[in-house]
């Protein structure tokens, strides 16, 4: 157990260094670089509309410069920024004029509902299909599945989302043109109406082909491997032999899935854009289009911070999934 704790601590330090790196990176983007370019970062957080009124604009700039401390030495600014970030204070979204974190908390659930069910479904599907292909290696079933995975992997996600939206939603009217219009309340019917197709699409495009092929290829290797051969000679029943092969093949797939989980929030821009789902991807895209920098960098931080946490949890779980790793803990 102590070995596990020291491992956990070591990984924590590694991930914490990355977190600091991330904060420095964000600070550079939002404040450091502009100042290096001789731009007062405040101009980025003052609503553009104000610039029509010269006086109001100037006052606003002045107040905010003092408020955010942009007139202070860089290291003071930096420390303040780190503090703010770690307390999730990213400033005000100047369009809705609300704290950025409030906006984020408002939009995050749409994305979570969008992404989590497909991740689960696609993982099971990938495992099942990969296993079927591996058990019938070289057969027509295997060829079809393997090539399907490859093709699916290479279909640009935005094209698939778009084309399915056009065919099923626009042409066949099997759902609302813009999901935002029905997602005004979280009742189950509305959620199903809005999400059924996005769920299918994310199931297909987000990591599914990679996991499926990974399952297939690993299991093909494992089925050929010496320990499986040995179990067979030793007279272990074929059903049990296969379940052992599956068990070992699952390890890389599960590892891969947990990495996918870390980045799933980053894979949603297109789908939210096409289907009009007001989630994090939509928020970030809107922020980028409108140059709403506090919102932009704030949501970017949340997305990345989330990956970081999931990656750390992965670090802790890997030794449980793969008993072989226990050895490397010592």
């Amino acid at each position: 157990m102590t070995s596990f704790l020291s491992y956990a601590l070591k990984r924590f330090i590694d991930r914490f260094i990355l977190l600091i790196g991330l904060i420095v990176f964000n600070w550079l983007l939002l404040e450091g670089l502009p100042e290096a370019f001789g731009i007062n970062p405040v101009v980025w957080i003052v609503p553009r509309e104000l610039s029509h009124n010269v006086n109001a604009y100037a006052t606003q700039i002045k107040t905010l410069t003092v408020l955010f401390g942009f007139n202070q030495p860089l290291y003071v600014q930096f420390v303040r920024y780190v503090y703010n970030t770690l307390t999730f204070h990213f400033g005000y979204d100047f369009l809705a004029n609300e704290p950025v974190i409030v906006e984020i908390i408002h939009h995050l659930p749409y994305t979570l509902v969008l992404t989590i069910p497909p991740l689960i479904i696609s993982t099971f599907l990938a495992i099942i299909l990969g296993q079927i292909a591996a058990l019938r290696r070289g057969s027509a079933v295997d060829n079809t599945l393997s090539n399907y995975f490859i093709i699916q992997y290479n279909i640009p996600g935005f094209f698939l989302s778009f084309i399915l939206w056009v065919v099923l939603i626009v042409a066949l009217k099997l759902g609302p043109i813009s999901d935002a219009s029905v997602l005004t309340s979280w009742n189950i019917v509305n959620v199903l109406k809005a999400y059924w197709l996005p769920w299918i699409i994310i199931t297909l495009i987000f990591g599914f082909p990679v996991r499926g092929l990974l399952m297939r290829n690993t299991m093909v290797d494992i089925l050929d491997s010496d320990f499986i051969r040995y179990e067979r000679i030793a007279g272990v029943k074929e059903g049990i032999v296969r379940s052992h092969a599956r068990q070992v093949s699952l390890i890389p797939v599960v590892t891969r899935t947990s990495i996918d989980l870390a980045f799933i929030l980053g894979g949603i821009f297109v789908i939210e854009y096409v289907f009009g789902i007001p989630g994090m991807g939509y928020l970030l895209t809107e922020a980028a289009v409108k140059f709403d920098f506090p919102l932009l960098v704030g949501s970017f931080f949340v997305l990345t911070f989330y990956s970081l946490i999931v990656l750390y949890i992965n670090d802790l779980i890997y030794p449980l999934i793969d008993p072989r790793l226990k050895k490397s803990l010592r």
């Binding site: 040995y230 000679i233 052992h244 390890i251």
Partner: peptide, 24 residues
């Protein structure tokens, strides 16, 4: 497999180093 393997004839294979299931 049921009646001969292992109970009548067993083998120490050439690949003994890898013959064991790594996760059991």
């Amino acid at each position: 497999r049921k009646n001969i393997s292992w109970s009548k004839i067993s083998i120490i294979p050439q690949y003994s180093m890898n013959a064991l299931n790594p996760v059991k």
